[in-house]
Design a binder for these strands. Structure first.
Lengths: 195, 195
DNA sequence: TAATAAGGCTAACATACGTTAGCTAATCAT
DNA sequence: ATGATTAGCTAACGTATGTTAGCCTTATTA
């Protein structure tokens, strides 16, 4: 791993945990095993590190939600749908990089327009668009009652997003949050799926 | 209005807009028409101002969600339910104090345990508990199909909360967000209300 | 082999910012 | 009236922090 990448990794971790403003340049450098001023061989400044992080977050986002091949094949039953959805949720909560990006964005969303926009895309449209496709597909196969797939996706994902945020800030409630999410998903299936 | 209160008002506005760390003590004082060091006649330090703000936020919360008299009388029809709900949403978005507290919390939620907990209470349980009561009441009167009122409340409020957050960080999208919320609420009614 | 570039270091700077000390004017209770 | 408290001010301090300058070593390349 190049030094630049290790800097980005350390910065992401620290920014997510303590916020951009309360993370010192020396602190980031320390995690990488170099001194503060050496960072400036790799970045123009602290803000530049943040921007680079956001760039990679954008790339991550595109890679994950841009193509459809990551959706896997459509679930064939109610139980399978629950399992798949919970799988995505657990992954999203636990993947270190994704969870750090989430924490970073939520704290810095008011810093500038770009961050605001990206936060919206991640928090609101990312998962939702993904599930719109999935539900649409399952609707075509008659597994969901006819309805607006985008609306259903929103109703499926919104409570999950809130509970994931909650787990981010109160990790001791992760289990409880996951249970709430599963309860919600099952209820969602009972209401909107056929048979 | 006492100076202390004016300080709190200015601090809330600035913290909400720029975050705690990027708000200077002199800046707060300037808004009140005094000099930075004079703040220390009223508060022990900058952090103390934040804590006092959180205290009043807590009081606000209790006052608003603690008693049930603020719910008003139960809506008598689908249309009335939509109107009431949208009314509460618009109020929540536009009331300056509430919207500032929301922005403050969302930015500082990782600062300490107390802020994390309060953020959860505001973002997750506040409105939800309120609507649990309302839906429960309407269920008793046969206006909602029999179901778990808390789950329904979560499904009603979660998308709204996300869209309100979105309007907070992208005020230029307020109208669009409100429309999405109304669409969601109407869909919710179609699914869960009787007739 | 010589020259150059990369990437690390130390020293130092600039400055912004939270906070304290100490003075003064005004208000208020005795 | 007078002593005390309140609440403002200026000056100054201390420190943390982002950044720059300049040096040195190592690796690459002509």
């Amino acid at each position: 791993m190049t030094t630049r990448e290790r800097i980005l990794g350390a910065a992401l971790t620290l920014f997510a945990e303590n916020g951009f403003d309360r993370t010192g340049v020396d602190q980031i450098a320390g995690c990488v095993g170099i001194k503060g001023p050496s960072l400036y061989k790799h970045f123009k400044g602290k803000e530049d590190i943040l921007n680079a992080l956001i760039d990679t977050a954008e790339a991550r986002y595109e890679e994950y939600f841009g193509s459809e091949r990551h959706f896997g094949k459509l679930p064939g039953s109610k139980e399978e749908f629950v399992r798949m959805t919970m799988g995505k949720v657990s992954f999203t909560i636990r993947d270190p990089m994704i969870s750090r990006i989430r924490k970073l964005l939520v704290q810095e969303q008011f810093r500038n327009e770009r961050l605001a926009e990206i936060t919206t895309r991640h928090q609101l449209y990312g998962i939702q668009r993904m599930f719109t496709k999935i539900i649409e597909g399952m609707m075509d196969e008659g597994m969901f009652k006819k309805d607006d797939p985008a609306l259903l996706a929103a109703e499926l994902t919104a409570p999950a997003v809130l509970l994931i945020s909650r787990a981010d800030r109160q990790p001791q409630c992760e289990k409880e949050s996951l249970e709430s999410i599963e309860r919600h998903i099952r209820h969602f299936c009972d209401v909107y799926m056929t048979e």
